[in-house]
Amino acid sequence: MSEFLFIAGAALAIVGGLLAVVARNLFHASLGLAMTLTGTAGLFIPLAGELIAVVQILVYLGATAISIIFILMLSPPFYLKRPNRNAMKVVGAIGVVLIFAVPLMRAVMSVSASDPLNHVAPTVNQIGRALLTEFVFPLKLFPFS
């Protein structure tokens, strides 16, 4: 079950992320972002974060992605001819990303930890208690951001 959720969530996230970055039509790009957010919510379930998965769907997908679709009204209309991609810019961006990717991937590969077998998943009660005791200052500061 955990493997299935991971593979499905990862596939949704990767395909959605690719769509969000390469699609010429910005509406397709924002739908790709919504796909990535859904896949990520699926990934949170095997990580014992059911509450976070629900919040991700409700807030991230329901509010943030929808407000991005709202901003799309200001982008140029889709029936106009889109300007072509600047090949130099794409090549440059890919080069910079690759330079950044090599040390990042190396650092990521060097981390190893196996799935904790007999752990107790944190409950919603625990999250609420921590939010109102240990993290009450950031929580109260948050509305000012």
């Binding site: 991971f6 990934l43 095997p46 961006a93 990303v97 990717a101 990521v108 590969m109």
Partner: peptide, 19 residues
């Protein structure tokens, strides 16, 4: 699933975003 699987996925998404 191991920790590195999640980390690789997140690194790939981050690189997409940077691109």
């Amino acid at each position: 699933m191991s920790l590195s699987a999640y980390l690789i996925l997140s690194a790939v998404l981050f690189l997409f975003g940077a691109f």
